[in-house]
Amino acid sequence: MWAIETRNLRKVFRPLFGGKPITAVDNLNLQVPPGTVFGFLGPNGAGKTTTIQILIGNVYPTAGEAFVLGHPAGAIAAKRKLGFLPEKFQFHDFLTAEEFLRMHGRLAKMDGATLQKRIDEVLELVGLAERRKSKIREFSKGMQQRIGLAQAIIHDPDLVILDEPTSALDPLGRRRVREVVQYLKERGKTVFLNSHLLSEVERSCDEVAIINRGRVVKQGALDELLVNRSIVSIELKRVEPRILEGMSKVARKVQPVDERRVTAEVDEEDAVPELVRAIVESGGALLGLQAHRETLEDLFIQTVEGEAK
C-alpha cells in the first residue's frame, strides 16, 4: 500500500462567470512509498498546492482518484492518520500554545491523558516548551511556523504533509524543521514535503517527484536521479570550435556560455582530468576550471526547462 497514490488525477477550475477553464492538475500519477521523506517539487503554478488540497480533501478532483494511506483522499479514515501544515495559515492567536495544541488534539479525537503527554512531547520537539503559556499572537513568524508544525504532528499521524514548512524560517528554524522531519522518519512516518528550497529537500528527502503543468515529469529516489554526474565550468583564453570538438569526445554535453567560458557535463568526477587533457590537446589555453556534483537544483532546472522546450 502506498502512503499516497494518485491515478490520472485531474482538476479543472472553471471560472464562475465564463472565461477559460484552468487545468491545475492534469493526469497526475504519483506513488509515495510509506516511511519515506518525499519531496514534491515544481515551478510556481505547476499544480503542487492543488494536488495537496485534493489529498487533504479540501478540493474535489474533476477526474481520477487519490488515495491517502489506502483510503480515498478526504475520507475521515484518511484524515485521522494525516497531519498537515498549510503554507498560508492564520492560527487562533488568542489561544496559548498549549490551548492551541489541545484544541487540535481534541479535533483529532485524542483522549485527555494521551493528549497532555503528547503536548509536552511536541512542544519540546519544536523548541517551544518554555513558551507553552504564551499567546500565539506574541510569537514571531518563525515560532508560529513551529507551532504549526506541532499541530500537524500532535496526533502522531502516519503521514505528514508539509506545505512550504521552511519558507518563513531562518537557518536555525530550518534546522529545527529538518530535525523534526528526521524524528518522523526514524519513527517510520511518511513525510510529504512541498518546498521551493531545493537544498533543504536534497538534505532531507529520500525520493522526489518533479511536476510541471499538472503532470509528474520525473520521479524517483534522489540517489538514482542524481547520478554521479559532474558539471564543469571552464574558462579558456578563447573558445574555438576545435576545442569544443575535442571536449565533446570526453563530455556528454558541452555548452559554450560566451567567448571565454564553457560548461561541460561529465558522467563522473574521474573524467575531469581527461577533459583537461582534451582541452590542452586541442590547443586550448585553460585559465580556470571548477567542477561540482550535479545538485537537485541542476536536475530541477534541467527537467523544467527541458519540458518548456
Partner: peptide, 14 residues
C-alpha cells in the same frame, strides 16, 4: 480566505 480553516479542515471531522 484569512487562513483560519486551513489547519482545521484537514482534521477528521465532517
Amino acid at each position: 480566505e484569512r487562513g483560519y480553516l486551513a489547519a482545521i479542515l484537514p482534521r477528521p471531522l465532517h
